[in-house]
Design a protein around this nucleic acid. Sequence first.
RNA 1: GAGAGUGUAGCUCAGUUGGCAGAGCAUUCGACUUUUAAUCGAAUGGUCCUGGGUUCGAGUCCCAGCACUCUCACCA
Length: 564
Amino acid sequence: MGDALAKTGSLAKKRLPCVNEAANSQSSARLIFSTFASAFAVTDTPSNADDLDLTDPHAARRHKLEEITAKGIDPWGQRFDDRLLVSECRDRIPQIQWQQKDGETIALPDVESEEVDYRQWKADNGPGEEIGPIVRVAGRILLARPTGKLIFMNIRDWTGDIQIFVGKKQVGDENFDLAKLFDLGDLIGVQGRLGRTNTGELTVFAEELILLTKMLEVPPEKHAGMTNQDLRQRMRYADLAFNDGVMQTFLDRTKIIKSIRSTLDDQGFCEVEGPTLHTVPGGAAARPFETHHNALDMKLTMRIALELHLKRLMVGGMERVYELGRVYRNEGLSPRHNPEFTMLETYQAYGNYESMMDLTEKIICDAIEKIGGGFKREYNGTMLDFTPPFQRATYAELFQKATGIDPADEDAVKEYAKGLKLTIDGKHPDVIRNEIFEEKVEDSLQGPIFVTDYPASICPLTKRKKDNPEIAERFEMFICGMELANAYTELNDPDLQEELFKTQLEGQDDEDSMAKMDHDFVRALRYGMPPAGGLGIGIDRLVMVLTNQKSIRDVILFPVLRPE
RNA sequence: GAGAGUGUAGCUCAGUUGGCAGAGCAUUCGACUUUUAAUCGAAUGGUCCUGGGUUCGAGUCCCAGCACUCUCACCA
């Protein structure tokens, strides 16, 4: 072992002019690299090679890194032009054909099918040879099956996996020696013919191998992957690179968000960016994160909602406006809560909560069409049907159905609350009603379902029903017990709004209340905000439901974690 | 913030009544030119989360702490 190292060491000095003919041959890149190689060769490599424990996976990778450098190959790669994505290789499958000796080409049989034995088929249709396009692919090595003078590898780019065939005779000694220095997780480029192996597997038959980047860490277990939740989130890069389906979930998230924007844009909505630093944390009932502005020496809070600034813009005449952005709430974590999360809020002048219901359906159904999978889809083991229109029911109906009591009967409600061991002292009747509702109804709403017409006093930013001031024109949409959307016919009476800000709801602490006085907002309303419908959608939760992920942390790339 | 569970090799996990620390994958060496989580043979690899305690002896029992997961609370 020591001998081998000594040899490669001297080799490095002899072969300083870059011998990596296989790599990209931009001469400037080579020039830069030979400087790199010489710098590396001069820098003393560990001399205690005899002590190196090569069965330590990390040490083995470091050692291969040195051997690669000693060959004059840049282990960190160069620009790699004209490559095809794996998905594009799949598009070229029809170009793989069988050419008989007389020059006639015939299509391959359905090699993917169980019944077809491609090896036998070739014998029956021979003599001849398989032909296919020359392709260049790049990706991360996920699996390797070396069989002597032959190596099968599976590489992955962000569109899929493909098999690589490396034969010693086919690629030549130099390429083959390089391939033997590849480890699982390395990023490589391959040029070769696209074809099929005897077993019918789509394969790039390598003619040229290029190391694009060496991986120095050890990959997770190749079958089980990285299952530890904490590690997955802490090292999202490894989770994305090695765990099946993770990339797809996040690409779907992007598709969903793009789809939401395009649905709204198509209907004439205008996207804006409100401030994330607020002086009054309004628009929702939540504890804010606090921060401090040095030059102004004042307290600022991170926004907990988008609402009040979007409504100011409605006053200004932006008749259809939305923001799709991050809000921050200083509260507990759970599989459904992350301290920062993405919300859509949108407002439509001259609409009401019913226009928002239609819009919600459209937003969700459009997104489903973009990511595919149909309106009937599974979430967490239950089948959900998103075929519009979604189910609708009033708050009172659902309350009555679940509890058997009339929500208008205050005494009966109080008795029921006592039965649930809820504390009712000093609480507003609507607050008690709502606690019962949350306890008995919400969790059981499989949905998607719109719950409409909430008690007015728990909705301080909502317009009351014309014929019943006790009821607010509001809906919430639930799926699997999760609240996904919340919409109002927006309150635009400045005096009533000011009144609602002033009167704290009975039984609610200041910090629990939505009713935080925002004088400028009330002034804005006095300038005249059109009657409007407003809608908020929890984007992370929507993505959870549409991508069938149980935890919000599986749809947020970098959820909040304690430091390592 | 409360309760329950988990923490053992780089990764995934076993570990019996308290009695020498185990497997698979990965890694290293050997064999193999159409493999499919390749296979076969051999080897290497440990702060058993941390700190105390009980004991002749602790991965295992007790106490405290840390981290994660789940449930609940706050909340969307």
